[in-house]
Amino acid sequence: MIGKGIPRGFIITLKNFFRSPVTVQYPDRKVSLFEYAKIHNKNIFKLFFSQPMLSIKISLGLISVPSSVEQSQRFRGNEFTFFEERCTACASCAKYCPLGIIEIVSVPGGFDAQEGESYKLDVFDIDIGRCMFCGLCVEACPYDALHMGTKFEKSTYVRDDLIITKEKLAESEKSPSSFYRPQFEKKKFDPFKDNIKDHYKAGRHEKPEYKELKKKWVDDR
């Protein structure tokens, strides 16, 4: 019947009018007085009587608080987590990178009677200005030294600052994402609240058992 479809469409748009919005205010969002008191852990009445001007400003919508975007645990962000103690300078990450933006220079690191010769990192640069965050370097790392980060708010004014060096990686906050690292998901590690400073706590994603190793390298040979 002609003329029926258009009002039906209008009813649906009217229904959607009263839905809660799906958009997120970023980087700041406006808050109500009640929410503001909850964020700052204050009693709403105390806040109103101690700071009346602020309370009026909040109720008028002039004050905003920083908001966060909801992310999943496997988010591939640009603040890499790197444990230098674990790195053997094997350059698997540099070989596996599709763009070739990881630069590694290694030097002989010393001799241990049990483990033999080892190598030490001299230069470890990731040019994240050209990085596409595919995560293949993390997938290639055999010792779980490199992890993707969950943070993404790392903008700079100069392009050269986007090259993250070994020192910058050591200083940065270590909140690794669980991309290709199932051990974090098993341990229920939450990168948005907690961080890992010690590499002993990070765990390994695939540690072959002694039996498997013996079968592969001794029995089958």
Binding site: S72, R74, R76, F133, C134, G135, L136, F179
Partner: peptide
């Protein structure tokens, strides 16, 4: 957007999944 959120859970990216 719902579907992209599911992809983020699966692989950590929304559009360039790999």
């Amino acid at each position: 957007e719902n579907i992209l959120d599911l992809f983020e859970m699966l692989c950590g990216a929304r559009i360039t999944n790999s």
